[in-house]
Structure formats: structure tokens, C-alpha cells
């Protein structure tokens, strides 16, 4: 993850998916991910259906396939783990290209890949069509404790600034001839991280002072002015129902 990562999460657009109320979108996404995660791995057709629904949503959101695929790189470490499973798992063996692989392990690998891929793609669609602040707003309306969403909001607000401070510290060290080769050379960088923590904490105190001086008394003012339209929920629940129905049928039939 690079420092500039945060900017690439959201892709500006005006599709129906973009305009949907965040709480409806998040609820639909959550139901869909749960449906994917509970679909039995043997029901390959069900995963095809899940992928189909997802493809329709991606198309409706006008997200380029390249954008989704590039962001999917985040699950690469688990693709690695999944590919190892057939080799280390026990149980009945099958011969594939002269190599003995565990049948259960192959199913396990498929299970991890399919669910990780679909689950991550759903998150990518949500983050790709909803600005950070709107996602937090949606979570709040779904009754996630306000303190948590506020902390997350402050985190996202200051993430780029603090990452930039760390990067500058590293640049300053490199400029003075620091050549990191092994863990032992990390000491100045780790110390710099400690110093950046102190600065972050002090920034937190300054922000608190700025809040106080504008009349903050411990609770954030409610600024809620947006109205959720019924059609947002209908659309969202349509997608969620498709995923849930697929999962239920898959569970019953396998």
C-alpha cells in the first residue's frame, strides 16, 4: 500500500449505484457477502450466479473492469495460501499432471479463492462508488456506534498527512546516507515512527483544542439532512435477495 492509496479507492461517477443511499448500499453488500460466505463450495453454479449478479452491479456502476481487477490485487497473498492447500491438505488424493493432490484440499482452495475473490469484489464496488465520508454516514445510520464511525472518520482524514510525515522522515534519512539493508538498520526509522507518534498525539490535542474553541462539548452535532429514498432500498434489497436466495437454494440442494 502506498501513501497515495486512499485516493484510488473511490471512482467518481453518476451511476445509480453511486447515487444510492449509503446505508442501503452497505446493507445490500453485507447481505451479499454473508450469502457468498455461506454458500456451500460444492455449489459451483451458485458461485457463477453470485459472480453474475456482481458483474451486473459492476456494469451498472460503470466501474471499469481494470479498476476492479487492479484493486483485487490485495487478495494476492491469499491466492498464494490457497494454491498451497491442495499440497498440504490430507484426505483422498487425486492425480493432476502427475502430482498427487488432496481432493479435499482442491475443494478448500476453490472455496477460499471463490469467497475471497467475490467478497473483496463486493467491498471494492462499495468503496469504488461511495465516498469515504458517505460510507461512514451509512454505517452510522445502520446503528454502528457513532464513536466508532467518528474515530474512523478522523483516521481517514489524517491518514494521508501522517503517512506523508513518515515518508518525509524516511526521505530525510536516505538523504543523509542511510542505507537500510537488514532489520538492524531499521532503528532510525523505528525511532522516527515513535517521533511521528508524538507529533500525531500532539496534533490530536490541537485538533481537540480547535474543536473546543468552536463550541464542542463532548458530543458531535447531528448534521443529518439527507433523506433515503424508498427506491434505494428496493434496489439494494433486490441485489441482496438475489444473493441470499442463491445461497439458500445452494445450501438446501447440496
Amino acid at each position: 500500500m502506498g501513501a497515495g492509496h486512499a485516493h484510488t479507492l473511490y471512482r467518481h461517477g453518476h451511476s445509480h449505484v453511486h447515487r444510492m443511499a449509503p446505508q442501503a448500499k452497505l446493507a445490500a453488500a453485507f447481505v451479499s457477502v454473508v450469502a457468498v460466505a455461506t454458500t456451500p463450495r460444492e455449489a459451483v453454479w451458485a458461485f457463477a450466479l453470485h459472480a453474475g449478479v456482481l458483474a451486473v452491479v459492476v456494469a451498472a456502476a460503470e466501474l471499469p473492469l481494470g479498476f476492479v481487477l487492479r484493486r483485487l490485487l490485495v487478495i494476492v497473498p491469499f491466492v498464494g495460501v490457497a494454491l498451497l492447500i491442495p499440497f498440504v491438505a490430507g484426505g483422498e488424493q487425486v492425480e493432476v499432471l502427475g502430482v498427487g493432490l488432496s481432493r479435499e484440499g482442491l475443494w478448500g482452495a476453490w472455496n477460499v479463492l471463490a469467497k475471497a475473490g467475490l467478497g473483496a469484489s463486493i467491498s471494492i464496488v462499495v468503496a469504488g462508488t461511495t465516498e469515504e465520508a458517505r460510507i461512514l454516514e451509512g454505517l452510522e445510520r445502520l446503528r454502528v456506534p457513532t464513536t466508532l464511525t467518528l474515530i474512523a472518520g478522523f483516521m481517514l482524514r489524517y491518514l494521508v498527512l501522517i503517512a506523508e510525515e513518515l515518508r518525509r522522515a524516511r526521505t530525510a534519512m536516505l538523504a543523509r546516507g542511510w542505507v537500510p539493508r537488514w532489520l538492524g538498520d531499521a532503528r532510525p526509522a523505528a525511532s522516527a515512527a515513535g517521533v511521528v507518534f508524538v507529533r500525531s498525539y500532539e496534533r490530536g490535542e490541537r485538533v481537540h483544542a480547535a474543536m473546543l474553541s468552536r463550541g464542542f462539548t463532548g458530543t458531535m452535532p447531528e448534521l443529518d439532512t439527507h433523506v433515503t429514498s424508498g427506491t434505494d432500498w428496493v434496489l439494494g434489497m433486490g441485489v441482496a435477495t438475489a444473493a441470499a436466495a442463491t445461497a439458500v437454494v445452494a445450501v438446501v440442494t447440496t
Binding site: 469515504e132 472518520g153 481517514l156 482524514r157 489524517y158 496534533r203 490541537r206
Partner: peptide, 14 residues
């Protein structure tokens, strides 16, 4: 009205 030195400390909302 107190305007702080670092504008980043003052602008904390999304």
C-alpha cells in the same frame, strides 16, 4: 473565533 496556525488542525470534518 480562534483560527489556529495549522489549517489541518482546524479542518477535521469530512
Amino acid at each position: 473565533g480562534l483560527v489556529f496556525q495549522g489549517a489541518d488542525d482546524q479542518l477535521f470534518m469530512p
